[in-house]
Simulated assay, not measured.
Amino acid sequence: MMDASLYVELCQLYARYAEVTSSGRWEEWPDFFTDQCLYKVQPRENFERGFPLATMSFISKGMLHDRVYGIRETLFHDPYYQRNVTGLPLLKSVEGELFRVEANYSILRTKMSQETTVFNAGRYLDEVRMTPQGLRFSAKLCIYDSEMIPNSLIYPI
């Protein structure tokens, strides 16, 4: 069981994550994770069938920093804004200082001079750990509902 003040801290973690991924402050994104972590963006079909194939899969904070470098320095794409709308986190289980959490998300994308579209929708299946720096994700699985995503996935969701 989680006490109310810890649940508020968990909600703040998700709200800050949505703020950073919506505002393009990518240098802050890896700070939400433990050093040894898993970040995966995977279609629901693959997840439910137990297939490992994922659109993105990073296994350390260093790999997250590499992705940020790629976004800032090497990837060329049409610019767009991204808005992360995340539902309240649902605490699924507690094992000591490890919390298993699920939350729904929608990613809206706005390209210059175009209407906003739903880019990606699904659920986060997360493992959140208590660390000396506060709550951090040790695993974030972004399981998206559609079988395909339009164009390429540049920014983390």
Score class of each variant (00 low, 15 high):
K61W: 03
L13Y: 05
D126T: 06
C37L: 07
R109S: 01
R44Q: 03
G50I: 00
P43N: 06
W29F: 08
Q82C: 10
G62R: 09
Q12W: 10
F99N: 01
L91Y: 04
L125V: 09
I107Q: 10
M2N: 09
T34A: 02
S152R: 07
G96T: 01
Y124A: 03
S5I: 15
Q12T: 12
L90Q: 12
P52Y: 11
R67C: 11
G96M: 01
P132R: 15
L75R: 13
A15T: 04
D3L: 02
E9M: 05
C11V: 13
E28A: 12
T116F: 05
Q12M: 12
S113N: 09
K92Y: 13
D145A: 04
T34L: 00
T131N: 00
I107L: 07
L38K: 09
N120V: 14
F47E: 12
R44P: 02
L64F: 06
A15Q: 02
T117V: 14
E147R: 11
I71F: 09
M112V: 10
R109T: 00
A139D: 00
R25M: 14
L10G: 08
P156C: 03
N151F: 09
M2S: 11
G96F: 01
K40L: 12
K111W: 07
N46P: 11
E9K: 08
C142L: 01
S93K: 06
R123G: 04
V101N: 01
R83C: 08
V128D: 00
N104Y: 07
Y124Q: 02
R44E: 04
V101A: 01
R123E: 07
K92H: 15
L75C: 05
A103F: 00
M112F: 11
P43T: 04
S93I: 01
G96K: 00
F51P: 08
L90V: 15
R67P: 11
L64M: 08
S146F: 01
Y14Q: 13
S22L: 07
D3G: 02
L135I: 02
Y14N: 13
Y80G: 14
Y80D: 13
V118P: 07
S152V: 09
Y80W: 15
N104M: 08
E28S: 13
M1N: 09
V94R: 05
L38R: 08
Q36N: 01
L91T: 03
T117Y: 11
A121H: 04
E97V: 00
T117S: 12
N46W: 14
N84D: 10
S57M: 12
D3Y: 04
F137M: 04
L13R: 06
A54M: 05
R136C: 01
L108S: 09
Q12K: 12
Y39G: 06
F47A: 12
K92R: 14
E97W: 00
V128M: 02
